[in-house]
Write a protein that binds this DNA or RNA. Structure first.
Lengths: 347, 347
DNA sequence: CAACGATGCTAAATGCTTTTATCACCGTCT
DNA sequence: AGACGGTGATAAAAGCATTTAGCATCGTTG
């Protein structure tokens, strides 16, 4: 025989009261008058019986389910962007909420289905996340539904959480400049397509913008630039290899992401160049591999977890201003940058 | 003015019927008698009004919420094991369910809270996942709650989904044997602690067992063995470096995971050994880095996604036999193994 | 023609909680 | 004595869907 869950009625009975009273007391309803003794009795009954309200029943009445829908396109559960979910789950739990995770596979039909599925469960709000920060058509939801875009932007007015890529781009340059780099700086992975089309990436253009404007401020001009629309390790290898063959005195590389850097390490090595001593590398993302490489890779992190948290605080908080909410990209200083002034590089 | 959701009553009204009838028709209740015309009218009304049942209200009556609780210890949302969630979410959605993701941080108190939180939402069952396949004290849940352990085992009788590590261990050896390796095989990362204590790892001993028994069957004895309780890249580097310095003719490495392999690559390189030509490496996990390495790493994959799927099919299906449900570990053949018979290695 | 069995449908209860409106009682004031 | 205000509580409805038990109506059968 399965023990049934304690209900509010059980508590009321145990305390010799009506469910109404029990409800009002447990919820701390203002403007009610109960004797201290009564209040105490109810609370004690609730605690001994281990009462927990049925969230579904409550939601039926109050329209608040303490539940948030997290709907992502392809792969927010992918290792790349799983920090988004992680941050959201953590932040939600801290304020007594719970997260319903749904994936649409990027397919608009399934997206509609996903949205409906969470709405059916009376969620208090929906976070729409994409893995590649992209411009999306915000899914249609009933008027009045709270929505936050995570790692995505849309044409419709709404709130969107994004990494502060422009500042991140500037930070990357700062890391190099701080270490005394002024000449012989090359850029690996300039991405013309993505810079043009926000449906591919909402952020790459800004990263680029941050880099170039900061370089300008320092009066630095790039010694070389290698373009690529793909950013896999092999691309980094190929581009860096070409670069080192063509250009004379390259002292530092700005790689557009860590996977490119991974390939760049190999190309440098083959050429007899030790990263962190003969050549500096700064990069973006703080991917898993960044800490595995030797020397470990200095990189501007994509703050996925913080972004996930921010999306929740935005969804549940009272900042209702539509627009972009930027999350800083921390500079992770490791060992891949040679300090030209002290000349203390990697050993 | 916010448009209210369509309710069953709305549908009934539109079809000129009672909610009772509408419910029975839409749910295809057997042993009811309605005219074809009536059925049609209800279905049409439901579809034009875009009716979707309120899952909470329904759960109140039926105790089925089409929702599954996924509670994990520290980090099932971590990139390492995020495949577990991904598989679960996918499989759940395919059968019309949705997944509630909660984390306990490994703290027993928070674990209780996490379980309660999903129970409050009347989930149809709970998946308990851990990142490191470990032996755990299965959390207490009310009798009658369906539970599946994912990547974990416990003393209590219940169902547990695990990777088939023993077969995986055998596969690793097979990959080497197939390529003609018989001598000069070394093992990197033997883990004495974890083999002894299932609270640290439920699976490492089995992986080891698979490796040794298969080696035995081939009559192969290990040329060397390096132990370590940590399996990070630096450990792989250090162990391999030592190994190569000490032992004479090492032709193949079995690394206990891909991060060790990563370090091993570096050690080989430094020693002037080209992986896939001068020395073979086989490994475990199929981590992100396995495909980035050059030559790419042949490895026995941890089938996280398939395991997540399996947990759901177990939770919702009717295999109620307690015990372990093993998921095969696919051998991912890449380029890190030299075929001694054709001598066609990596170029 | 009365009884009966199909046929087609519905009222009301149920699940659990919150909310609104109201009630009984007591003491005090005029 | 009657009105009044305060105190401490509750009945009933509402929120949405499902389930149980039963009600009309109609054609058939003996």
């Amino acid at each position: 025989m399965v023990a049934k869950r304690t209900t509010l009625a059980d508590v009321a009975r145990a305390a010799g009261l009506s469910p109404t009273s029990a409800s009002q007391i447990l919820n701390g309803k203002p403007n009610t008058r109960f004797s201290d003794d009564t209040r105490k009795r109810v609370r004690e009954a609730a605690s001994t019986l281990n009462y927990r309200p049925n969230v579904g029943a409550r939601a039926l009445r109050t329209d608040r389910s303490l539940t948030i829908g997290f709907v992502s396109d392809v792969v927010a559960t992918t290792r790349f962007a799983s920090g988004l979910i992680r941050g959201a789950v953590e932040a939600a739990q801290e304020v007594g909420h719970v997260v319903l995770v749904v994936e649409s596979g990027g397919d608009p039909a399934r997206e509609g289905e996903a949205v409906a599925a969470v709405l059916d469960r009376q969620v208090d709000g929906i976070v729409f996340a994409t893995m590649q920060a992209r411009k999306i058509k915000a899914p249609v939801v009933p008027e009045g539904t709270r929505v936050v875009l995570l790692n995505a932007i849309s044409a419709e007015t709404s709130r969107a959480v994004l990494p502060d890529e422009e500042a991140g781009g500037r930070s990357a340059v700062d890391l190099l400049a701080q270490a005394g780099h002024r000449d012989g700086i090359a850029l690996i992975g300039r991405n013309v397509l993505s810079e043009k089309f926000p449906t591919r990436s909402a952020t790459i253009a800004r990263r680029m913008q941050g880099i170039t404007s900061r370089l300008d401020e320092f009066g630095i001009s790039l010694a070389a630039e290698k373009a690529s629309d793909e950013w896999e390790p092999d691309d980094g290898y190929r581009l860096t290899k070409e670069l080192l063959a063509e250009s004379g005195d390259i002292r530092a590389l700005i790689c557009m992401n860590d996977r490119l850097s991974f390939g760049a390490y190999r190309a440098c090595l083959e050429r007899g160049l030790t990263v962190g001593r003969d050549i500096s590398i700064v990069s973006f993302d703080d991917d898993e591999i960044a800490s595995y490489l030797r020397p470990s890779l200095s990189t501007i992190a994509l703050p996925y977890q913080a972004m996930g948290r921010r999306a929740i605080s935005l969804l549940l908080g009272d900042e209702t201003e539509p627009g972009e909410y930027l999350v800083p990209m921390p500079a992770i200083e490791r060992e891949s940058i040679l300090d030209l002034r002290t000349n203390s590089g990697w050993v």
